[in-house]
Design a binder for these strands. Structure first.
Length: 492
RNA sequence: GUCCCCUUCGUCUAGUGGCCUAGGACACCUGGUUUUCAUCCAGGCAACAGGGGUUCGACUCCCCUAGGGGACGCCA
């Protein structure tokens, strides 16, 4: 049977290797059956979703070669593929669930919910909604709404019994209904939550197999119940293991470079990154570690997935990338790929205005612009020293800048400039002193082309990574220090 | 705290009851090739979390314990 699978990223930040991981397995699964792979943008969180993030997600996945058959930019018979453009659809189903007695309007305040949660936590119970509004009549609800009371729609959950989640990898998982919360389906702003939107869209888009992270197992009962309430056939569920940091926690950008853009900027080949992701939790029948996307599809089988959550090991990725470079590319292709990577005309045209007036002969160019094509510059604690500023404060400057930059969406010269002007002011420091260590962290030397232009060209992934690198050169920050710094940071 | 998932070398994995004296790869170490380095080649180190069952036989099946992870939001 032809499978239809999807990857459904939320455009709230840098495109994550975890997204690529799920996309890869979804893609292989669908293509193995001759089916389709769909890209859907889950931007129901109006607060955090940005069009910039969506654009970089599409770019990143396309760079990797995971082309989708249907999606926001190619359309298809089940569009639109952006949830923000489907809001009227979800409302309809929420109404239907209410009418059928499967959902109800809830007028509880956030404060009340927080209190309930806290007391349940304290009593050692599972935290869940206490059913306060479940018996409000239709008329009363209408009256409250007419009076301008804000409300959400929650789904009803069976009072007893267990839900059996059929996982294609693990078999049956039993979760008691008493553990499942009366999930909000429609938020006060009229937007659906993930749980409603994902069920409605997966059904309407005729998704047959849901491949997603293990983190979703515990909310699977809600989804299963919604399918039941709506009378729809349940797709197959495949929960992939989660990628991890070397310390075994869930892969996160605080501890590891997680954005696809970082690996692109560092000069990894998309084929190699994809190949590496493919060998996490999956292996070729003959044990070969180097394989193409097509080879993976050809040999793809769920039974070859292992369930232990793998550590993302940059060393092994580098080794694999080296093999791709040496074994797959001839000199001509190598030249083309390097050019495409950073030495392309567009990129040079951005750099040249910054250095043209600083050189007399071409040969002066290389040392001046080498940091545009470098990974992590070689730094020493001494090189990051700033006159009249304590080393601890330098570390603080770097860390605060990093946090500001992690929140920065518009990656251009002037906004970046402003970011540092603001930071210096709130810290009560001279801009020059704040910028000095940043300059060295980014360029690796005390003299270089203008900082903000350079940062704009380097892009967010490399800049953030270099700042993180600088912090670690200064000895890094301990958990205790992070706590203290975070507190101070919030008070700025 | 409650619930759920997971558990083979430091790391990625092979292993679907006898082929296991547990195989491969990364990393690390040693040696060789190379004017250097890298590549490449040869070799080495290193694991079935623990305890009970089931079975003629358990890395493989079951149970318990431990460890790790995840979920517990009007985030996804």
């Amino acid at each position: 049977m032809k499978a239809r699978t999807r990857v459904a990223p939320s455009p709230t930040g840098d495109p994550h290797v975890g997204t690529a991981y799920m996309a890869l397995f979804s893609y292989c699964y669908a293509k193995k059956t001759g089916g389709e792979f769909i890209l859907r943008i889950e931007d129901t969180d109006a607060e955090r979703s940005t069009p910039e993030s969506e654009a970089t997600i599409l770019d990143s996945l396309r760079w990797l070669g995971l082309d989708w058959d249907e999606g926001p930019d190619v359309e298809g018979p089940h569009g639109p593929y952006r949830q923000s453009e489907r809001s009227d659809i979800y409302g309809q189903y929420a109404e239907r669930l209410i009418a059928d007695g499967h959902a109800f309007r809830c007028f509880c305040t956030r404060e009340r919910l927080a209190e309930v949660r806290a007391s349940q936590m304290k009593a050692g119970e599972t935290t869940r909604y206490d059913g306060h509004c479940i018996n409000i009549s239709t008329d009363d609800a209408a009256a409250l709404m007419a009076a301008g009371e804000a409300c959400v729609v929650r789904m009803k959950i069976p009072e007893e019994g267990v839900c059996t989640v059929k996982d294609e990898l693990r078999g049956d998982i039993e979760i008691a209904w008493s553990q499942v919360d009366m999930q909000v389906l429609l938020k006060a702003d009229g937007n659906p939550t993930y749980h409603l939107a994902v069920v409605v869209d997966d059904h309407l888009m005729e998704i047959t197999d849901i491949i997603r992270g293990e983190e979703w197992i515990s909310s699977a009962p809600k989804h299963i119940l919604l399918y039941e309430y709506l009378g729809w056939p349940m797709p197959k569920l495949v929960h992939m293991p989660l990628l991890r940091n070397p310390d075994k926690s869930k892969l996160s950008k605080r501890k590891n470079p997680t954005s696809i853009g970082y690996y692109k900027a560092m000069g990894f080949l998309p084929e190699a990154l994809l190949n590496y992701l493919g060998m996490l939790g999956w292996s070729m029948p003959d044990g070969e570690e180097k394989f193409t996307l097509d080879e993976m599809i050809e040999n793809f089988d769920l039974s070859r997935i292992s369930l232990g959550a793998p550590v993302f090991d940059v060393d092994k990725l580098s080794w694999l990338n080296g093999r791709w470079l040496r074994e797959t590319l001839d000199d001509g292709q190598f030249a083309d790929r390097v050019t495409e990577w950073a030495l392309n005309r567009d990129n040079l045209l951005k750099i040249i205005p910054l250095v043209k007036e600083r050189v007399d002969v071409f040969s002066q160019l290389a040392p001046m612009i080498s940091f545009f094509a470098e990974g992590m510059p070689e730094l020493s604690p001494e090189s990051l020293k700033v006159k009249n500023v304590e080393e601890e404060d330098v570390k603080k400057i770097l860390q605060f800048s990093l946090w500001r930059l992690e929140a920065q969406i518009l990656w251009e010269r002037d906004p970046l400039n402003q970011l540092f002007v603001d930071l210096a002011e709130s810290l009560g420091l001279k801009l020059r002193d704040v910028l000095a260590p940043i300059f060295v962290a980014i360029s690796g030397k005390p003299v270089a082309p203008p900082l903000f232009d350079s940062m704009a060209i380097l892009g967010p992934d490399i800049c953030r990574a270099r700042l993180r690198h600088a912090v670690s050169v200064l000895g890094g920050v301990s958990k205790k220090q992070v706590k203290r710094l975070e507190k101070e940071y919030k008070e700025l």
